[in-house]
Amino acid sequence: MAIEIPQSFWLYFIFFALLLVDGLWCMLATRNLVRILIGVEILMKSVTFLLIVAGYFSGRMALAQALVITVIVIEVVVVVVVAGVILGLFREHDSLDVENTREMKG
């Protein structure tokens, strides 16, 4: 079943693309672990935004909200666990530089 999407969808898609590029750049242009986590968060925001926009235009907002709630739960767990790992690395190396993880044995 094909449905015609209004042209205003493109406006939302442009802002999704901007958020995505912003998050990717934030991740790639730094070696600070906290800042990389902030980049991941911005990427998650862009995905959340696109899910809601897709639900809005397809008329399935309830399903989109259910998926967004799942995404938010995963986001929280990822942030909390990675924050714990970052603190552990900081206590070990006294630095937040991602290069320190290269020396690990695993």
């Binding site: 079943m1 094909a2 999407i5 907002m61 309830a62 399903l63 909200q65």
Partner: peptide, 24 residues
């Protein structure tokens, strides 16, 4: 991207039925 006018037509596998978010 604001100058691009992409043909926006998507295929949906199911007819659009939506209920309350709590039900879903």
């Amino acid at each position: 991207l604001s100058f691009v006018r992409a043909p926006v037509q998507i295929a949906l596998p199911l007819p659009a039925t939506d209920g309350d978010v709590r039900t879903v």
